[in-house]
């Protein structure tokens, strides 16, 4: 156990230093993910003119949460892993007595911390410009939201890493991620909260992983009604499923990789 803590500490501190090297890019990445802010403008405008299940203020709060959750759940492992496989850089990593995925996990976790100051700065700026949108989430809502954001990150990482493992066979695993991203964009709650979706669509969606990646934690923060038990159950279910597929693909992939010449 002490060994594991020591290893994690070293990995995290080195990768944090690595991420901080890219601070200029980090600011750009934070800004590049301001898509939810644009959606906020569209929806608050629409809410003022029409009747929706959410008020203009609730839309504003919802989308600022979407922005925040996106910042904390961004994942890029498929691009890095694909490059490692194509360029053969995975080989030396396989000769170290540790699963290469820990390098990616460490870089993803530390990137969140490196990005955090800019994200918070933007949030503060937002509430200064739009003070009536400020609110204090309930304590239980906050705790639950933090837990589900962590779970959402784990699930999204696992899903993308599972696609990444296809790089052992296709060398273009990123194409899979791009198709998936299209669904993610529309169904996760990034462009509209699930509340405005037709009832039938919503009933199907709650069994898919999509709404739990953004809509679910955002609703917990804003205080929109969600089925917490079902939500966490579905998230855990998909996590276990992708974990199993992931490990199976990893073993098969390594066999294939070594068969094709590593």
């Amino acid at each position: 156990m002490r060994q594991i803590i020591h290893k994690s500490r070293i990995f995290l501190s080195v990768y944090y230093a690595y991420m901080v090297e890219y601070r200029a890019e980090l600011i750009l990445w934070v800004l590049a993910n301001s898509f939810p802010i644009i959606m906020m403008g569209i929806w608050t405008e629409a809410a003022e003119g029409g009747t929706f299940s959410l008020s203009a203020l609730e839309f504003a709060r919802y989308f600022i949460c979407v922005f925040f959750i996106r910042q904390l759940t961004i994942v890029w492992v498929v691009w890095e892993f694909e490059r490692e496989v194509v360029e053969g850089r995975l080989s030396p990593r396989l000769l170290q007595p540790i699963d290469p995925v820990w390098h990616h996990v460490a870089s993803h976790i530390t990137e969140r911390f490196a990005r955090m100051p800019f994200t918070l700065l933007l949030l503060v700026l937002f509430f200064i410009l739009y003070p009536q949108a400020a609110w204090l989430p309930s304590f239980s809502g906050m705790i639950l939201a933090i837990a589900t954001i962590i779970l959402a990150f784990i699930l999204r990482f696992l899903i993308q890493y599972t696609f990444a493992l296809c790089a052992f066979w296709t060398e273009r695993a990123t194409a899979l991620e791009q198709v998936w991203f299209l669904f993610y964009l529309f169904l996760s709650g990034m462009i509209a909260p699930l509340n405005v979706f037709p009832e039938g669509v919503r009933e199907v969606l709650v069994w898919t992983p999509f709404p739990y990646l953004i809509y679910f934690p955002a609703s917990l923060l804003v205080g929109l009604p969600v089925n917490i038990g079902q939500g966490i159950g579905v998230m855990l279910g998909w996590t276990v499923l992708f974990w199993a597929v992931n490990r199976w693909l990893w073993r098969r992939g390594l066999k294939h990789y070594s068969g094709m010449g590593a």
């Binding site: 070293i10 990995f11 080195v14 690595y18 053969g88 850089r89 170290q96």
Partner: peptide, 25 residues
Amino acid sequence: LVMGQKQQLLWDLPALDSLRINAAV
């Protein structure tokens, strides 16, 4: 295994940081 052109060290950090990772591994 050392392969001449395959870069293992983290490019933007001092080599000492990559060495610390190896030591932990």
